[in-house]
Amino acid sequence: MAVIDHPEKTELKQKDPCVFEIIVSVMPELKIGDCQNLKISHQPVETKESEVEDYLNELRKTLAEFKEVQQPAQKGNRLEISLTATDEKNMPVAKLTTQNHPLILGETKILKTLETNLIGMLPKEKKSFQSKLDHLPQDSTLTNQVFNFEVTLNKVEEMILPEVSPEFIQKVTGQSFSLEQFQTEIKNLLLNQKKEQELRRREIELIDALLKITEGEIPLVLVEQELQEMQARLAHELEHQGMQLETYLTQQNLSWEALKRKWQPQAEREVKIGLIFEELLKKEPALPTETEIQAQIKLLSTGTHKKQPDFKKDSPAYLKLIRQMRLQKIVNTLLEK
């Protein structure tokens, strides 16, 4: 019996002989169905020539030059705009007000109506319009409101893309590739990205399948612990954005209890997934070899500038890595069925 939290109740029932009643939460016993016959779908992975061309054009944009022009704005131009906004009560909205803001016409995500109005405008021209936001930022106070905008087009610049020359290839890759070799490199890069995405998709499908064939009660104490961890992660992310959790909850018009209710299904899912894999680990006692562990450590430290944990033998990071490798082996085995 594995106890997973402090006792919920401790009561002296009898003094002589001494008898206590202690109520505690224990690790549940899950019943996992037949894993060996799970059928996880495969989706074909390929890279089209048009995708290679699109990727190449995005690389060209990173080294593009811009020339100021006195002509109507069109898609692909880099613009500099000033924007003011007022709400339905004609009160200024500071979060939607900006001065000398650069953007590439055709790539705006927050306000598509803005792009519609900018097309055809001349430098120094002003225009007023009304609109909602198409892609809402993390602020529910801006949801479902119609705003009054006034935009001034300060500058129009034409984008001049570089030719795909040997010099360009050398600059973006650091290698002396021919155009054909460069396109092959891009194709392989995109293909590997798609393979990784397909693997992630299949892993999610596998987890969903495991959840469906697993029976057992989930202790509320574990769900509560997961909710606390979710709260801590959110607070950490907000702190990096210069915001406190309390401020975020106020902006979202949420209480912590309301947010917990919203998160409850996800927390229950995460707990159940963790318990399932703990059960599967019991059935897969084999450990990776030291050679495999060192190879994985080397792989983790390759191509990254992030500080890596200290993988000293038997350290917490080392043991965590072994557990991750064991879990990945289980997942890979089930995906190969």
Rank of each mutant, 00 (worst) to 15 (best):
V93A: 03
A64Q: 06
N57E: 12
N100G: 07
I81C: 11
F66A: 09
Q70L: 09
E68N: 05
T98G: 15
E49L: 09
E107V: 02
L105R: 05
L105M: 07
K48T: 01
R60S: 07
E49A: 13
E80L: 13
D54K: 14
L79K: 06
P92S: 03
T116V: 01
V69Y: 01
V52E: 09
N77Y: 04
E53F: 01
N117C: 02
N57T: 10
N77P: 05
R78S: 12
Q99F: 04
P92V: 00
E68D: 10
A73G: 02
D54N: 13
E107T: 07
N100K: 15
T108N: 15
L114H: 10
L114E: 13
K112W: 03
A85R: 05
L83N: 05
Y55D: 09
Q74W: 02
Q71L: 11
I110W: 12
K48W: 02
H101E: 15
E88V: 05
E65G: 11
G76R: 00
T116Y: 03
L56Q: 14
E49Y: 00
T108G: 08
L56A: 01
E65H: 13
E51W: 07
Q71C: 02
H101T: 03
T116G: 09
L83A: 01
E65T: 14
A85C: 14
M91D: 10
K109N: 12
Q74C: 07
L63D: 07
T98L: 13
G76H: 04
K112H: 13
I104W: 08
D54L: 09
E58I: 02
L103K: 10
T62W: 00
R78Y: 08
K109G: 01
L56R: 12
K95H: 00
V69Q: 13
K75F: 08
S82Y: 08
E68K: 12
E53G: 00
Y55C: 06
E107D: 13
I104K: 10
L83C: 05
T97D: 12
K112M: 08
N117M: 01
Q71V: 02
I104R: 11
A64C: 12
A85K: 12
R78D: 06
E53H: 06
Y55A: 00
G76T: 04
I119Q: 09
G106R: 14
D87P: 00
N57S: 11
L111D: 10
E68Q: 12
L118Y: 00
K75S: 11
P102L: 08
S50Y: 00
I119E: 09
K67N: 07
L96H: 05
G76L: 04
H101A: 09
P92G: 01
N90P: 02
R78K: 15
L118N: 02
L105G: 07
K89C: 05
E51C: 06
